[in-house]
Design a protein around this nucleic acid. Structure first.
Lengths: 336, 336
DNA sequence: CTTGAGAGCTGAACCGCATTAGTGCATGCT
DNA sequence: AGCATGCACTAATGCGGTTCAGCTCTCAAG
């Protein structure tokens, strides 16, 4: 900026005013300064900007997962891609970190905030007993929780969520009307907020209809557990006629396991995947799946965060309920 | 730091010396200062550090992919996870960005470097005619190219690579000894350095053995193209007896397509996937696959970058050749 | 007893920007 | 003519660190 000031024949502060669109300089001077800056290829140093109170121009994103669990999962890349789209418009950087568990994640938030590395964070995989909202509140770190339920205990946090409960209800509804009475839900990690929401809703739906052969089993989301649980429930005394899997990986593995056991999909057992991806179209029959727009989900979350950074109020935004794409893996229940 | 200085009864510079392990203070004072800093929960502001010449303590990672291509791909997440492991030890942040194409990627490097946002970058998906090494050279931005071939034209860049050529040769060797003479390689994106390396090696191997029914077909890595190409080559006049797919997604889609055409795997056609993941164990038969340790790959790349940041020389590191995991999808060629 | 060297510490400058409190000048108003 | 007003701009300060040139002691060597 000193160089620009010299070349343009003005003071450094005039340059600052000109380049930041603030009043205090004539349009003439502003244009001249802009042009000189352009010629010199000037870019503001984010460090200096941050030091003088402008914030870090960066938001943080932490993924708490053991390295080996990071498997075939299209959701996060898509989410991040959507987030980026919005952040890029405002030239905000995304600081990304993978850690082992939520405790480490909290430590990262503490450090980032203390070091002024980020202006806000995006939180994923909210849990039922989650230390993070409390921490973020305590720190005063602006944050958007992705996938959480509305949470009136933390008015400072924005939330972006999909209505799992509604989706689960509609899936059960669909299966019920196809004649299914015994349904097993192969759920994801216990403790995750959306896992528990789905489980609760399923139970409520079952009770409402007086169904006894309906239950949820939690897993670690892996193909191995998906297949194992599938085998177990299909070989049990009173096997289900429909299976709902909490992700695509388990659904595919589960469908394969069912086929191996000599059960035909969907004649013997219907399969629904709670996540749509290319995977669901790589097996025969193609899997019926709940489809949501993960990229748009990311965009929405990022928009909420930028709104928060602009000083806007925390909000709770609901993205559209995922809709069921009917493919070949769901059909009428076989007569008992 | 001013507070710490006051509490410890020393000057601010003494605090700086003490906390950064520099000489100039007694061990007594150092301990005292450290303790006060601890009590006050002090953390250095990265912005201030960066401003006074210490660098940004951040490395950049750009993924140039259209949003919709970010599908089922375990490689990148694993790579990033490995990178993180190494960076986290040194408290280096990872600035992550997804862009549409290489031109945008170059713009991001320019901006990051000009804004002093990063100290170095990790470059993936090198191409045959790639503008990035030239740009990085020109900028003087420390960088590690992941997956490129050794490149003596850019002595400033480090390279971490796997020997695709060797791996391809050994795969062809294995298939040849199983009696396969007609092999089709369903390759990835043309223009990617490793795609071209594999294609060249395959051709060389074929010529060496006087095989005429061997060729490569490039694709966009998608399941759709993988399946389409598979159908096309299998229905051609002189169909191959073995297929090599450049990623797991295409291999699975291709195997499914072959089965649909009534070809049995591996009796009629052998399938090899150039990427191992849970996907390969989700279909019957399980796919034989080239397995590499993507997490370790990431660690190695990150280590090279930190070495570069420490002022070390640029190096070219070769990670172990991926090894073929023989599963059920490869077998002896059917007699002609 | 003087001198020199080194250890331990301080004060001030600096990094690149934003911001605030002036400064000088032309203009309009009375 | 005298004065307030507003505009265009400058000088100075601060953000939170690092660094470098001293400065003061102490202690050993001469």
């Amino acid at each position: 900026m000193k160089d620009i000031a010299r070349h343009a024949g003005v003071s450094q502060s005039a340059v600052s005013f000109a380049l930041n669109g603030r009043p205090g300089v004539s349009e003439d001077t502003r244009d001249r300064v802009r042009q000189v800056a352009e010629e010199l290829g000037w870019r503001p140093s984010t460090a200096a900007r941050a030091l003088s109170g402008e914030g870090a121009a960066t938001v943080g994103f932490v993924l708490a997962r053991p390295a080996d669990t990071l498997g075939v999962d299209s959701f996060f890349l898509q989410l991040v891609s959507g987030i980026q789209e919005v952040l890029a418009e405002r030239h905000l950087g995304l600081l990304f970190q993978v850690v082992e568990d939520v405790a480490d994640e909290c430590a990262v938030y503490r450090r980032w905030w203390a070091e002024h590395r980020v202006d806000g964070v995006l939180v994923v995989d909210p849990r039922t007993a989650d230390p993070r909202p409390d921490l973020l509140d305590e720190l005063g770190l602006p944050a958007v929780v992705i996938g959480g339920a509305p949470d009136e205990r933390h008015p400072g946090l924005s939330t972006v969520w999909a209505d799992d409960a509604g989706a689960m209800a509609s899936v059960v509804d669909g299966l019920y009307s196809l004649g299914h009475r015994r349904i097993v839900h192969i759920a994801g990690l216990p403790g995750l907020a959306h896992t528990e929401r789905r489980i609760r809703t399923l139970r409520a739906e079952a009770e409402r209809r007086g169904l006894s052969g309906v239950r949820s089993v939690t897993t670690d989301y892996s193909d191995a557990e998906g297949a194992a649980v599938t085998r177990r429930v299909l070989e049990s005394a009173d096997p289900p006629t429909a299976l709902i899997y909490d992700n695509d990986v388990m659904a595919v593995a589960g469908a394969a396991a069912a086929t191996e056991l000599g059960r035909s999909v969907p004649a013997d057992v219907s399969v629904v995947s709670w996540e749509d991806s290319a995977l669901c179209r790589m097996v025969k029959p193609w899997l019926s799946a709940l489809s949501r727009d993960s990229v748009e989900f990311g965009r929405t979350a990022a928009r909420e965060l930028t709104a928060l950074l602009d000083g806007g109020p925390a909000r709770t935004v609901r993205v559209p309920v995922p809709r069921l794409i009917e493919r070949g893996s769901t059909g009428a229940a076989r007569e008992a």
